[in-house]
Amino acid sequence: MTPDHPFSPIDVLASTLGFLASRDPAMVVLDAEVAENSVLGSFPSDYPQQFVKTGFSERDTVLLAAGLSLSGRNVFVCSQSAFLVPRAYDAIRTAVAIPSLPVRFLLTHSGLTAGADGATLQIIEDLAFLRALPNVSIVVPSDGLSTRKLVEGSFESKGPVFFRLSALPLPGLERPAGLDFHPGGASMLREGDGVTICACGTMVHEALRASAILSQQGIEAEVIDCYSIKPLPAQAITASVRRTGCCVVAEEHNSSGGLGGAVAELLCQSSPVPIKFVSVQDRFGQSGGAEELLEYYGLSFKEILSAVSQAWTMRRR
């Protein structure tokens, strides 16, 4: 199926939120200063009654969201991940996660590709913070279609949902028709029996690029878009590594606490196989262009190729 959504995750937010707002008058979007980045498009002017600008007050924004949710509103919070997650962690934990309130967080500009503003704004450890919280769902969409479906689906969620979104333009992916997206789900983008590549967000695209080259070398990679970091699509991953016998995890996140850690925790208990990780190697980012940074920090198809060849030689037969 050709992608009917040639848009980036961040491009579809405004229209998706608009669709939800038109359907449900109790839906509210809180904006901790992302509207300036045109992430929300015309939403603020199209739905002024359902839009609250909260400014740079991340903890208070999360508390406001909790209160709105307690009074029956369907709340979305938009904020840059680098500000919201570390600053408001206490409020997220106490006021949203412990009481398990259905507040959805759209965390924009996550990862190294946040841009030239340097280490402070390039959060590479947000998944580690969030994964440690009980009661929450975390998703990292890799294209417009999955973002739209997951955001729409989160409307039915009974607990908090976090969306980790890259600012990078990501083209629509070719996916099997009629695919369903939900927390705990995964989408199989390519089948193969040589190696399992689990990836999320930006790195899904690099994984597909690597798999085309691997195929020429005679290794058929199985590429899983692990958009759901929590709950992890355990069955899809274990079923795949039982066929392939080795695994590579690729993510635009630090080497600890992200998708790699989650997959390793799963596999070492259920189906131990050699795993290699393509991630930021425990150091902070710096200024630079998005593409330059991905290359400099070793987050490209080249590192996936090298990780695959290492995992493949050690694979369980």
Binding site: A26, V62, L63, L64, L70
Partner: peptide, 16 residues
């Protein structure tokens, strides 16, 4: 943390 949550409840009540 309480006042921020109370604000949200009050704003939600007013919206509804």
């Amino acid at each position: 943390l309480g006042l921020g949550i109370a604000n949200g409840i009050a704003l939600g009540a007013a919206m509804g």
